[in-house]
Amino acid sequence: MDFRFTDDQLTLAESVRDYLAGTHGPEVLRRLDAEGNRDPAIWQGLTEMGLTGLLVPEEHGGLGLGLVEAALIAAECGRACLAEPLVDTAFVAVPWLVRNGDLADLGAIAAGERQMPLPHVLNPWVADGEGSALESVDPLRNLVMFPAAGSADPYLLDLGALMSAAQLVGLADAMLHQAVEYAKIRTQFGQPVGAFQALKHQLASCAVAVEFAKPAVWRAAEALQDGGESASVHVSHAKVAASDAAVLTAETAIQVHGAMGYTYEVDLHFWMKRSWALNGAWGDRAWHLKRIDQAVIGGTMPIGPEHTFA
Protein backbone atom coordinates (compact mmCIF):
# COMPACT_ATOMS: atom_id res chain seq x y z
CA MET A 1 0.00 0.00 0.00
CA ASP A 2 1.69 3.14 -1.16
CA PHE A 3 -0.05 6.22 -2.52
CA ARG A 4 3.09 7.94 -3.71
CA PHE A 5 4.15 8.48 -7.30
CA THR A 6 7.44 7.13 -8.58
CA ASP A 7 10.31 9.54 -9.09
CA ASP A 8 9.92 9.05 -12.86
CA GLN A 9 6.26 10.04 -12.71
CA LEU A 10 7.02 13.13 -10.64
CA THR A 11 9.91 14.16 -12.88
CA LEU A 12 7.73 13.82 -15.96
CA ALA A 13 4.93 15.92 -14.46
CA GLU A 14 7.40 18.55 -13.26
CA SER A 15 9.05 18.83 -16.65
CA VAL A 16 5.66 19.39 -18.30
CA ARG A 17 4.75 21.92 -15.62
CA ASP A 18 8.00 23.81 -16.12
CA TYR A 19 7.68 23.71 -19.88
CA LEU A 20 4.12 25.08 -19.84
CA ALA A 21 4.95 27.67 -17.18
CA GLY A 22 7.78 28.89 -19.38
CA THR A 23 6.02 28.86 -22.75
CA HIS A 24 2.30 29.09 -22.02
CA GLY A 25 1.68 31.87 -19.52
CA PRO A 26 -1.39 34.12 -19.32
CA GLU A 27 0.05 36.39 -22.01
CA VAL A 28 -0.19 33.47 -24.44
CA LEU A 29 -3.86 32.97 -23.53
CA ARG A 30 -4.54 36.64 -24.21
CA ARG A 31 -2.66 36.50 -27.51
CA LEU A 32 -4.52 33.38 -28.65
CA ASP A 33 -7.82 34.95 -27.67
CA ALA A 34 -7.02 37.95 -29.87
CA GLU A 35 -5.43 36.05 -32.75
CA GLY A 36 -7.55 33.02 -33.55
CA ASN A 37 -7.08 30.56 -30.68
CA ARG A 38 -4.51 28.17 -32.11
CA ASP A 39 -0.81 28.43 -32.74
CA PRO A 40 0.87 25.49 -34.52
CA ALA A 41 4.05 26.21 -32.58
CA ILE A 42 2.33 25.17 -29.34
CA TRP A 43 1.25 21.82 -30.79
CA GLN A 44 4.73 21.37 -32.21
CA GLY A 45 6.21 21.92 -28.76
CA LEU A 46 3.85 19.40 -27.14
CA THR A 47 4.72 16.87 -29.84
CA GLU A 48 8.45 17.40 -29.35
CA MET A 49 8.05 16.70 -25.62
CA GLY A 50 6.52 13.35 -26.62
CA LEU A 51 3.15 14.17 -25.08
CA THR A 52 1.07 13.37 -28.18
CA GLY A 53 2.56 9.86 -28.04
CA LEU A 54 2.51 9.46 -24.26
CA LEU A 55 0.00 6.58 -24.35
CA VAL A 56 0.84 5.32 -27.84
CA PRO A 57 2.58 1.92 -27.61
CA GLU A 58 6.32 2.06 -28.32
CA GLU A 59 5.99 -0.04 -31.47
CA HIS A 60 3.81 2.73 -32.91
CA GLY A 61 6.24 5.49 -32.09
CA GLY A 62 5.00 6.52 -28.66
CA LEU A 63 6.21 6.31 -25.06
CA GLY A 64 3.81 3.55 -24.02
CA LEU A 65 3.03 5.06 -20.62
CA GLY A 66 -0.21 4.65 -18.65
CA LEU A 67 -3.26 6.55 -17.45
CA VAL A 68 -1.68 7.64 -14.15
CA GLU A 69 1.06 9.51 -16.03
CA ALA A 70 -1.55 10.89 -18.43
CA ALA A 71 -3.73 12.11 -15.57
CA LEU A 72 -0.74 13.86 -13.96
CA ILE A 73 -0.02 15.63 -17.23
CA ALA A 74 -3.69 16.44 -17.86
CA ALA A 75 -3.66 18.22 -14.49
CA GLU A 76 -0.68 20.27 -15.71
CA CYS A 77 -2.61 21.10 -18.90
CA GLY A 78 -5.44 22.35 -16.69
CA ARG A 79 -3.04 24.40 -14.58
CA ALA A 80 -1.75 26.12 -17.74
CA CYS A 81 -5.28 26.40 -19.18
CA LEU A 82 -3.95 24.73 -22.33
CA ALA A 83 -6.56 24.89 -25.07
CA GLU A 84 -4.91 22.66 -27.69
CA PRO A 85 -6.72 19.29 -28.01
CA LEU A 86 -3.86 17.35 -26.42
CA VAL A 87 -5.89 15.71 -23.66
CA ASP A 88 -8.82 14.81 -25.95
CA THR A 89 -6.54 13.34 -28.58
CA ALA A 90 -3.65 11.79 -26.70
CA PHE A 91 -5.20 10.81 -23.36
CA VAL A 92 -8.82 10.05 -24.31
CA ALA A 93 -8.86 8.91 -27.96
CA VAL A 94 -5.55 7.02 -27.93
CA PRO A 95 -6.28 4.60 -25.06
CA TRP A 96 -9.75 4.03 -26.52
CA LEU A 97 -8.31 3.23 -29.97
CA VAL A 98 -5.73 0.92 -28.38
CA ARG A 99 -8.44 -0.88 -26.42
CA ASN A 100 -10.44 -1.35 -29.64
CA GLY A 101 -7.43 -2.58 -31.58
CA ASP A 102 -7.84 0.36 -33.93
CA LEU A 103 -4.16 1.11 -34.43
CA ALA A 104 -4.05 2.78 -37.86
CA ASP A 105 -3.85 6.39 -36.66
CA LEU A 106 -1.58 5.92 -33.66
CA GLY A 107 1.66 6.64 -35.51
CA ALA A 108 0.29 9.86 -36.96
CA ILE A 109 -1.05 10.94 -33.56
CA ALA A 110 2.30 10.27 -31.88
CA ALA A 111 4.03 12.26 -34.61
CA GLY A 112 1.70 15.19 -33.96
CA GLU A 113 0.22 14.97 -37.45
CA ARG A 114 -3.27 13.98 -36.39
CA GLN A 115 -5.68 15.40 -33.81
CA MET A 116 -8.61 13.24 -32.87
CA PRO A 117 -11.15 14.55 -30.40
CA LEU A 118 -13.98 12.02 -30.17
CA PRO A 119 -17.69 12.54 -29.49
CA HIS A 120 -19.78 10.38 -27.18
CA VAL A 121 -23.56 10.15 -27.02
CA LEU A 122 -23.39 11.89 -23.66
CA ASN A 123 -20.97 14.44 -25.03
CA PRO A 124 -21.99 15.20 -28.62
CA TRP A 125 -19.95 18.35 -29.09
CA VAL A 126 -16.21 18.47 -28.63
CA ALA A 127 -13.41 20.93 -29.17
CA ASP A 128 -11.22 21.01 -32.27
CA GLY A 129 -13.10 18.36 -34.23
CA GLU A 130 -14.72 18.42 -37.67
CA GLY A 131 -18.27 19.72 -37.75
CA SER A 132 -20.45 22.79 -37.51
CA ALA A 133 -18.95 25.44 -35.28
CA LEU A 134 -20.50 26.32 -31.94
CA GLU A 135 -19.60 29.21 -29.67
CA SER A 136 -18.35 28.07 -26.24
CA VAL A 137 -18.40 30.13 -23.05
CA ASP A 138 -14.67 29.35 -23.06
CA PRO A 139 -13.21 31.74 -25.65
CA LEU A 140 -10.28 29.38 -26.34
CA ARG A 141 -12.41 26.31 -26.94
CA ASN A 142 -13.09 25.66 -30.63
CA LEU A 143 -16.32 23.78 -30.11
CA VAL A 144 -18.08 21.89 -32.89
CA MET A 145 -21.17 19.75 -33.22
CA PHE A 146 -20.20 16.42 -34.74
CA PRO A 147 -22.12 15.48 -37.88
CA ALA A 148 -22.68 11.91 -36.68
CA ALA A 149 -23.62 10.56 -33.26
CA GLY A 150 -20.68 9.49 -31.13
CA SER A 151 -19.88 6.19 -29.53
CA ALA A 152 -21.88 4.96 -26.57
CA ASP A 153 -18.92 3.01 -25.17
CA PRO A 154 -18.71 3.52 -21.39
CA TYR A 155 -14.91 3.15 -21.51
CA LEU A 156 -14.65 6.20 -23.77
CA LEU A 157 -16.89 8.10 -21.37
CA ASP A 158 -14.76 7.03 -18.40
CA LEU A 159 -11.59 8.18 -20.15
CA GLY A 160 -13.13 11.54 -20.98
CA ALA A 161 -14.50 12.01 -17.47
CA LEU A 162 -11.21 10.99 -15.83
CA MET A 163 -9.12 13.33 -17.94
CA SER A 164 -11.62 16.17 -17.42
CA ALA A 165 -11.35 15.57 -13.68
CA ALA A 166 -7.56 15.70 -13.90
CA GLN A 167 -7.68 18.98 -15.80
CA LEU A 168 -10.18 20.35 -13.28
CA VAL A 169 -7.84 19.80 -10.31
CA GLY A 170 -5.09 21.60 -12.22
CA LEU A 171 -7.44 24.44 -13.09
CA ALA A 172 -8.55 24.66 -9.45
CA ASP A 173 -4.94 24.75 -8.25
CA ALA A 174 -4.16 27.59 -10.64
CA MET A 175 -7.22 29.63 -9.67
CA LEU A 176 -6.51 29.14 -5.97
CA HIS A 177 -2.94 30.30 -6.51
CA GLN A 178 -4.10 33.43 -8.35
CA ALA A 179 -6.65 34.26 -5.67
CA VAL A 180 -4.16 33.73 -2.83
CA GLU A 181 -1.52 35.90 -4.49
CA TYR A 182 -4.10 38.63 -5.09
CA ALA A 183 -5.32 38.44 -1.47
CA LYS A 184 -1.73 39.00 -0.30
CA ILE A 185 -1.23 42.23 -2.25
CA ARG A 186 -4.67 43.84 -2.38
CA THR A 187 -4.92 46.21 0.59
CA GLN A 188 -8.10 47.55 2.18
CA PHE A 189 -8.69 48.93 5.68
CA GLY A 190 -4.94 49.18 6.03
CA GLN A 191 -4.10 45.51 5.55
CA PRO A 192 -3.94 42.81 2.90
CA VAL A 193 -7.48 41.47 2.39
CA GLY A 194 -6.07 37.96 2.83
CA ALA A 195 -5.58 38.69 6.53
CA PHE A 196 -9.34 38.84 7.02
CA GLN A 197 -10.98 35.60 8.06
CA ALA A 198 -13.94 36.34 5.82
CA LEU A 199 -11.62 35.74 2.85
CA LYS A 200 -8.99 33.39 4.23
CA HIS A 201 -11.61 30.92 5.41
CA GLN A 202 -13.14 30.77 1.95
CA LEU A 203 -9.72 30.19 0.42
CA ALA A 204 -8.99 27.52 3.03
CA SER A 205 -12.21 25.73 2.06
CA CYS A 206 -11.02 25.73 -1.56
CA ALA A 207 -7.66 24.31 -0.49
CA VAL A 208 -9.46 21.48 1.34
CA ALA A 209 -11.61 20.69 -1.69
CA VAL A 210 -8.59 20.69 -4.03
CA GLU A 211 -6.31 18.69 -1.73
CA PHE A 212 -8.90 15.94 -1.33
CA ALA A 213 -10.00 15.85 -4.97
CA LYS A 214 -6.47 15.11 -6.20
CA PRO A 215 -5.97 11.65 -4.67
CA ALA A 216 -9.45 10.67 -5.89
CA VAL A 217 -8.31 11.51 -9.43
CA TRP A 218 -5.09 9.49 -9.07
CA ARG A 219 -7.06 6.61 -7.57
CA ALA A 220 -9.49 6.67 -10.52
CA ALA A 221 -6.62 6.72 -13.02
CA GLU A 222 -5.10 3.68 -11.35
CA ALA A 223 -8.49 1.92 -11.30
CA LEU A 224 -9.17 2.61 -14.97
CA GLN A 225 -5.65 1.51 -15.88
CA ASP A 226 -6.17 -1.75 -13.97
CA GLY A 227 -9.65 -2.18 -15.46
CA GLY A 228 -11.26 -3.45 -12.25
CA GLU A 229 -15.04 -3.80 -12.15
CA SER A 230 -15.53 -0.74 -9.97
CA ALA A 231 -13.34 1.53 -12.12
CA SER A 232 -16.30 3.50 -13.47
CA VAL A 233 -17.47 4.38 -9.98
CA HIS A 234 -13.96 5.56 -9.10
CA VAL A 235 -14.07 7.78 -12.16
CA SER A 236 -17.38 9.23 -11.02
CA HIS A 237 -15.93 9.96 -7.54
CA ALA A 238 -13.10 11.82 -9.23
CA LYS A 239 -15.28 13.75 -11.68
CA VAL A 240 -17.67 14.98 -8.98
CA ALA A 241 -14.92 15.83 -6.49
CA ALA A 242 -12.83 17.65 -9.09
CA SER A 243 -15.85 19.53 -10.44
CA ASP A 244 -16.85 20.54 -6.91
CA ALA A 245 -13.32 21.75 -6.20
CA ALA A 246 -12.98 23.70 -9.45
CA VAL A 247 -16.41 25.30 -9.35
CA LEU A 248 -16.00 26.31 -5.70
CA THR A 249 -12.53 27.69 -6.37
CA ALA A 250 -13.68 29.59 -9.47
CA GLU A 251 -16.52 31.18 -7.57
CA THR A 252 -14.29 32.04 -4.61
CA ALA A 253 -11.42 33.35 -6.73
CA ILE A 254 -13.74 35.79 -8.49
CA GLN A 255 -15.15 36.91 -5.16
CA VAL A 256 -11.64 37.44 -3.76
CA HIS A 257 -10.73 39.59 -6.76
CA GLY A 258 -13.76 41.79 -6.10
CA ALA A 259 -14.96 43.84 -9.05
CA MET A 260 -11.69 43.14 -10.87
CA GLY A 261 -12.69 39.48 -10.92
CA TYR A 262 -15.67 40.35 -13.10
CA THR A 263 -13.53 41.97 -15.79
CA TYR A 264 -12.24 40.42 -18.98
CA GLU A 265 -8.91 42.07 -18.25
CA VAL A 266 -8.06 39.83 -15.28
CA ASP A 267 -6.85 36.47 -16.61
CA LEU A 268 -8.83 34.47 -14.09
CA HIS A 269 -11.85 34.20 -16.39
CA PHE A 270 -9.98 31.87 -18.80
CA TRP A 271 -9.56 29.27 -16.04
CA MET A 272 -13.03 29.82 -14.66
CA LYS A 273 -14.65 29.31 -18.07
CA ARG A 274 -12.63 26.18 -18.83
CA SER A 275 -13.76 24.83 -15.45
CA TRP A 276 -17.34 25.62 -16.32
CA ALA A 277 -17.03 23.83 -19.67
CA LEU A 278 -15.31 20.73 -18.26
CA ASN A 279 -17.73 20.55 -15.33
CA GLY A 280 -20.49 19.77 -17.83
CA ALA A 281 -18.40 17.66 -20.20
CA TRP A 282 -18.29 13.85 -20.18
CA GLY A 283 -21.16 13.57 -17.72
CA ASP A 284 -22.09 16.43 -15.41
CA ARG A 285 -22.22 16.17 -11.64
CA ALA A 286 -25.84 15.01 -11.54
CA TRP A 287 -25.03 12.21 -14.00
CA HIS A 288 -22.00 10.99 -12.05
CA LEU A 289 -23.78 11.26 -8.70
CA LYS A 290 -26.49 9.06 -10.13
CA ARG A 291 -23.95 6.49 -11.23
CA ILE A 292 -22.54 6.48 -7.69
CA ASP A 293 -25.89 6.23 -5.96
CA GLN A 294 -26.88 3.33 -8.20
CA ALA A 295 -23.66 1.55 -7.31
CA VAL A 296 -23.91 2.22 -3.59
CA ILE A 297 -27.63 1.83 -3.00
CA GLY A 298 -28.27 -0.54 -5.86
CA GLY A 299 -25.58 -2.89 -4.62
CA THR A 300 -23.32 -3.14 -7.66
CA MET A 301 -20.41 -1.68 -5.67
CA PRO A 302 -19.36 -4.04 -2.93
CA ILE A 303 -19.76 -2.28 0.40
CA GLY A 304 -20.15 -3.51 3.93
CA PRO A 305 -17.83 -4.77 6.61
CA GLU A 306 -16.59 -7.74 4.61
CA HIS A 307 -14.86 -5.44 2.10
CA THR A 308 -11.99 -3.04 2.43
CA PHE A 309 -12.52 0.06 0.43
CA ALA A 310 -9.26 1.14 -1.09
Partner: peptide, 10 residues
Protein backbone atom coordinates in the same frame (compact mmCIF):
# COMPACT_ATOMS: atom_id res chain seq x y z
CA UNK B 1 -4.81 29.65 5.14
CA UNK B 2 -1.80 30.85 7.12
CA UNK B 3 0.48 27.80 7.17
CA UNK B 4 -0.70 26.12 3.98
CA UNK B 5 -1.50 29.04 1.66
CA UNK B 6 0.85 31.58 3.22
CA UNK B 7 -1.80 34.24 3.77
CA UNK B 8 -0.99 36.96 6.31
CA UNK B 9 -1.88 36.30 9.94
CA UNK B 10 -5.04 37.85 11.20
Amino acid sequence: AERGLGLPRE
